[in-house]
């Protein structure tokens, strides 16, 4: 059985998900998530180690497409949607941190 989710867990998860929470939000979300996860204890407690997981309901495999060039989007149309663009590229504030 998993341990009850803590305020620190929620803060960590928010950070992973790039969400900023203030103190009051942290409290509310922690209580709500604990409530939902508490309900999920019914399955967390199931002894089903020998059951295979199902990630997807379809039995399909090997769906492949031919290597044929198709249409690309109009660049102006694409960049018109960008919050900021320069030199036909998407512009963002300085990037800190490593690319994994």
């Amino acid at each position: 059985m998993a341990e009850r989710i803590t305020r620190d867990d929620v803060a960590h998860v928010a950070k992973l998900a790039r969400l900023r929470l203030d103190g009051a939000e942290l409290d509310t979300f922690t209580a709500q998530l604990a409530n939902v996860l508490g309900h999920a204890e019914d399955i967390a407690a199931l002894d089903i180690d020998d059951v295979a997981p199902t990630a997807h309901p379809l039995p399909l495999k090997n769906v492949l497409r031919a290597d044929v060039v198709g249409r690309t989007l109009d660049r102006d149309e694409v960049l018109a949607e960008a919050p900021d663009a320069e030199s036909c590229q998407f512009r963002v504030p300085p990037i800190l941190g490593e690319e994994p």
Binding site: M1, A2, I5, D9, V10, V13, A14, L16, A17, L19, L21, F29, Q32, L33, V36, L37, A40, I43, A44, L46, I48, V51, A52, P53, T54, A55, P57
Partner: peptide
């Protein structure tokens, strides 16, 4: 949306995947 993103992030995160997401996939089989 924030609630579900955090719930899902938690369910997939290191240390909880098996207890939550992994278990849920098995229930799907059942």
């Amino acid at each position: 949306v924030k609630r579900r993103i955090m719930l899902g992030t938690y369910a997939l995160s290191a240390g909880y995947y098996d207890a939550y997401y992994g278990k849920a996939l098995k229930v799907r089989t059942l």
